[in-house]
Amino acid sequence: MSEWRLYEVFVRSKHGLNHKHVGSVHAADNEMAMENARELYTRRNEGVSIWVVPSETITASASDEKEILFDPSEDKVYRHASFYKLPDEVGHM
């Protein structure tokens, strides 16, 4: 089965929600990947929509890139609403 492609499976659990990664399946083609994903990950109403994506087509950030990619956002506290202190009298904003 190793010669079969590996697919990552994403399931939308309810209308209005995002697809979420749930795991992977092996399959000979896209159609079979969809069928396998359905059998494996949605046996109990877990979803209303499935995406299957060949794993090799996903570009992921490497774990050692964490600082390069995400550090700059930490010193930009002014991007958060909580940075702006307003007097209580203004009420909820």
């Binding site: 089965m1 992977s24 399946v25 046996r43």
Partner: peptide
């Protein structure tokens, strides 16, 4: 069967080959 497959998938993330 499903449980076996979830677990083989998890194992493959470590670079192991299912077959």
């Amino acid at each position: 069967a499903g449980h076996g497959l979830y677990l083989y998938s998890a194992m493959e993330t470590l670079g192991a080959d299912r077959d």
